[in-house]
Design a protein around this nucleic acid. Structure first.
Length: 934
RNA sequence: GGGCGAUUAACUCAGCGGUUAGAGUGCCUGCCUUACACGUAGGAGGUCGGGGGUUCGAAUCCCUCAUCGCCCA
């Protein structure tokens, strides 16, 4: 092969365009449930169709593809299930915002149907973009099985699950205090709100005690005075001497004409804080809600869904916005002489993450999934999910995340699954207020897909697997619940819904439970826990065996990357600049166990004028890829006339035995790393082997043999075998590069391998993952280590003494025994790799007066340099060397003279310390005598 | 307020009880040596956040303080 046929620099674009298409055409990514091979399955954490993928997705999907490609090469039937998530509120909010910005319209202006249509269009655009990004990265998903959480297959699973939960009594409707987003007019989950401290005010209001002749009154402090209209009690501490006597009496609630009780409550009230009296508004504050439950207080809801106050607030305030109500109430209280004071106060406000507006606690009808244990004590959903991890049925890596999983589930809080949105799975419940049990029995009695129950507030709730028509119940109106389900409801089904459940598909039989779920830690509770719960409920089996939690990518300042912060990086831009292999390798090398991954971000102006974010960290991957590319070039340039043949490893030159032994160790360790999700270790190990051993040393050793017709055939076989193995080992990390090398290698050496050559597979993508061949060789390793150490010593002497680069030096190595024997085997290499004219090894080498000398532990390296030696400088170097040795010798002597150490430390530690000391002392003696004669 | 984690070379990170604490990038000094300047050869650079403790021995285990990040209230 002519060197000019292969470019000097790896061209990622060429490889990416060529190979992805071929992998697809060959169907390498397509799983076959009917096949004989053992299953390995990963379901992709479906990216939100809200927007394009960022670097965090790139990391997660790189790691999943590493696992999938590795297992595929190991002979598993691999299914990587791709897809996207409709991301209910997030996507609807994005589209609504755009609607408002571009057309000044709200969703109520356009209506449900039209809005949903617009969101579908958005979804189509971003789904396409997201899946395209994954392909560019080289992800080997089974695209023929691509799913979307709102598609027909997933929707059917949602319906069936809801229905089954309803029938099992695991789902219920109830009034609860929720976080209400008045702008979006929906409940939002706890994890969809954030807190901010804002300067506000603390008002103190006077509540007169009813029927008090002495004009007694209680002072209550509040940051939200308008909610007093909904007070149903005032609480004091039951042991507070100031108020104890008033418990049980009533107060005149100002502005309302209502009377409310004074209750004693030790949980809500801290007698040392403020006045020691707390107003209780159960419908508008979570703590008050709990208090109301404890004392059986009525709940007065003051709010309309849009944030205005309703008729419960009284005619004076009804219809006004909560902000206006606050001003009126304060003014009215002041006018009535009931406002004691107001003072500045820092208020912690809740904001909706979606609309960025303040949250109102709001009492409303919601649907819940019951998490608690059954009344008879049988473990409920939360407990079963806790047990699955505690028992090891599901393993979480790194282990420490199992704690946050268990802690969160341990609260066993019911899961609110209804959202007042239009984008999502409509709740399959129909209300009927006029019918009777007999009517329902008559209409649906024979059907197994319809169930019903009496509503708390009267009337009936009908749950159906398929949509009921309005006239399904003759003579009575049926209206469907207007709400949709929380996005996590459908995401929680992902591992089995995507495989076809509730149908008993061959995919489900073969690939469930799946093998690994890879995700970020922030959704361990929201998503991972819920997948376990629904997997157990629907499938009677956990959804996956392993959960791998990857690090979170941050910018150079430790901030999370985000579009709004302007520090987000688009993986496609990185692929543009550095290539997909570089992106993947760099990310995998950063996926360490404990750390978050920092990527210093910098701005870059592209030739086309676009300004993007990038990070020079990716040079690491690009440079490594280029190195591999070039060593492959070198090997292939030297494969002319290659003939495969069995190789007798024992008869190979020592450098061949050494590299094969190193390869064997690398294969074993890399496999173990991947098995334990140690991606960074695997990536670094492969770099160390291929660059640090193969390129830096082996290739240099073997160059001479490749040029010599006599020794060439054997050298070709070893070199081809190592390059072949390297492609296999690196393929999961750098699929395009390795495929690009695999092709020409296959032309030059279609049959290869040591000790027994065999025909190579058509593509690296489907090549077998290598296994260790029992080629460890301690003697070969010791020998090559000797060569390396002495070569480095000579190079160091050359550099430090400024020996001209083309001077033919003649180093002498004073050594004896096995050391000398090993060095003699490598004389030619020592010569060629140090640019020496000759090398002499032996115990009695003369040491010319004009020499630079390095004293090593087991040898002295002498470099005669007539006329180039500065005696004073030599003496200074020797003195420095002596001082360095003393710095090691002294603490070691101290340690060994410490009786505590010699008697209590393990014998082998003491022995090795003694040996080390003896060696250092001998070395010191040599340096000392050298100093005398210089 | 509770929990988890981090703090090691200029930067990004390994090391998690026993040699003089490592890697990549960056920096300095030679080299365009017929695989590679996205390279090669050599080198400088760290009292392992502070303070206590356990141990013959601590970057590594425990306590405490500080700073930062995340999760949950």
């Amino acid at each position: 092969m002519n060197i000019n046929d292969i470019p000097k620099q790896y061209d990622p674009k060429d490889a990416q365009d060529r190979w992805y298409q071929i992998w697809l055409e060959r169907g390498y990514f397509h799983a076959d449930p009917a096949g004989e091979k053992p299953p390995y399955c990963i379901v992709i954490p479906p990216p939100n169709v809200t927007g394009a993928l960022h670097l965090g997705h790139a990391l997660n999907n790189t790691l999943q593809d590493v696992l999938i490609r590795w297992r595929r090469m190991q002979g598993y039937d691999c299914l990587w299930m791709p897809g996207t998530d409709h991301a209910g509120i997030a996507t609807q909010a994005v589209v609504e915002r755009r609607l408002l910005e571009e057309q000044k319209l709200t969703r109520h202006d356009v209506g449900r149907e039209a809005l949903v249509e617009k969101i579908w269009a958005w979804k189509d655009e971003y789904e396409k973009r997201i899946l395209g990004q994954l392909r560019l990265m080289g992800c080997s998903c089974d695209w023929e099985r691509t799913r979307f959480t709102l598609d027909e297959v997933c929707s059917r699973a949602v319906r069936r699950t809801f229905f089954n939960l309803f029938r099992a009594g695991k789902i219920f409707r109830g009034k609860r205090l929720v976080n209400w987003d008045v702008q979006l007019r929906t409940a939002v989950a706890d994890d969809e709100i954030y807190y901010e401290d804002k300067p506000g005010k603390l008002w103190t209001i006077k509540y007169p005690v009813a029927g008090s002749e002495t004009g007694e009154a209680l002072h209550v402090a509040t940051t939200r005075p308008e909610t007093m209209l909904g007070d149903t009690a005032v609480a004091v501490h039951p042991e507070d001497p100031r108020y104890k006597h008033l418990i049980g009496r009533e107060l005149e609630l100002p502005l309302t004409g209502r009377r409310i009780p004074i209750v004693g409550d030790a949980i809500l009230v801290d007698p040392k804080f403020g006045t020691g009296c707390v107003k209780v508004t159960p419908a508008h504050d979570p703590n008050d809600y709990q208090t109301g439950q404890r004392h059986g207080l009525p709940m007065i809801n003051l709010l309309n869904p849009d944030g205005t106050y309703n008729e419960n607030a009284g005619p004076k305030y009804a219809g006004l916005d909560r902000v206006v109500v606050r001003k009126r109430v304060v003014a009215d209280l002041e006018a009535a002489g009931l406002l004691v004071k107001d003072e500045p106060y820092n208020v912690r406000l809740n904001y909706s993450d979606r609309s960025k507006t303040p949250i109102e606690p709001y009492l409303s009808d919601q649907w819940f999934v019951r998490m608690a244990d059954d009344p008879d004590g049988a473990p409920g959903f939360a407990q079963k999910a806790i047990d699955a991890v505690a028992s090891g049925e599901v393993r979480i890596t790194p282990e420490r995340y199992a704690k946050s999983y268990a802690d969160w589930l341990g609260e066993k809080r019911d899961w609110c699954i209804s959202r007042q949105l239009w984008w999502g799975h409509r709740i399959p419940i129909w209300y009927c207020s006029t019918c009777t049990a007999e009517d329902l029995e008559l209409a649906f009695g024979g059907r197994s897909d319809v169930a019903w129950t009496e509503a708390e507030s009267g009337g009936w709730l009908v749950c159906a697997e398929r949509d009921l028509q309005a006239d399904a119940l003759p003579g009575h109106a049926l209206t469907q619940d207007a709400d949709v389900l929380d996005t996590w409801f459908s995401s929680a089904l992902w591992p089995h819904s995507t495989l076809g459940w509730p149908e008993a598909t061959p995919e489900l039989a073969k690939f469930y439970p799946t093998s690994v779920l890879s995700t970020a830690r922030d959704i361990i509770t929201l998503w991972v826990a819920r997948m376990v719960i629904f997997g157990q409920f629907n499938m009677r089996q956990v959804p996956f065996r392993d959960v791998y939690i990857h690090p979170v990518i941050q910018d150079g300042q430790g901030k999370r990357m985000s579009k709004s912060a302007g520090n987000g990086v688009d993986p496609v831009d990185i692929i543009e600049i550095y290539g997909a292999d570089a992106l993947r390798y760099t990310l995998a090398a950063g996926a360490t166990e404990t750390q978050d991954l920092r990527m210093p971000v910098e701005k870059l102006k592209l030739p086309d004028g676009r300004e993007i974010n990038t990070s020079d960290r990716f040079e690491q991957g690009r440079n490594f890829g280029n190195k591999i590319w070039n060593v492959a070039r070198l090997v292939m340039m030297n494969l002319e006339g290659y003939e495969p043949a069995p190789v007798d490893v024992a008869a190979l030159p020592v450098e061949d035995r050494w590299i094969l032994a190193e390869l064997d160790a690398t294969v074993a360790a890399t496999t173990a790393d991947l098995d334990a999700f140690r991606f960074a270790e695997a990536a670094k190990r492969l770099r160390e082997f291929s660059w640090g051993e193969f390129c830096d040393w082996y290739v240099e050793f073997v160059k001479g043999r490749l040029r010599d017709p006599e020794s060439r055939p054997v050298a070709q076989r070893t070199a081809a075998a190592v390059l072949d193995a390297l492609c296999r080992l690196l393929h999961p990390f750098m699929p395009f590069l390795t495929e690009q090398i695999w092709a020409p290698l296959g032309e030059l050496a279609p049959v290869r391998g040591v000790p027994l050559p065999s025909p190579a597979e058509p593509h690296a993508c489907v090549a077998a993952w290598p296994a260790p061949k029992g080629l460890e060789d301690a003697e070969a390793r010791a020998t090559v280590d000797q060569w390396k150490e002495k070569i480095q010593a000579i190079r160091n002497l050359r550099a430090e003494r400024n020996v001209p680069k083309d001077a033919k030096i003649a180093p002498r190595i004073v050594a004896e025994g096995a050391v000398a024997d090993r060095l003699r085997l490598g004389e030619e290499f020592i010569k060629s790799l140090t640019g020496a004219g000759s090398v002499a090894v032996g115990p009695d080498q003369a040491r010319p007066a004009d020499s630079a000398v390095a004293v090593l532990a087991d040898a002295e390296v002498v470099l005669p340099l007539e006329g180039l030696i500065d005696k004073e400088a030599e003496r200074a170097k020797l003195a420095k060397s002596l001082a360095d040795l003393d710095k090691q010798i002294n603490p070691l002597r101290g340690k060994l003279s410490n009786e505590g150490f010699t008697s209590r430390a393990p014998a082998e530690v003491v022995a090795s310390s003694r040996a080390k000391l003896a060696e250092l002392e001998a070395q010191r003696a040599s340096v000392a005598s050298l100093l005398e004669t210089t």
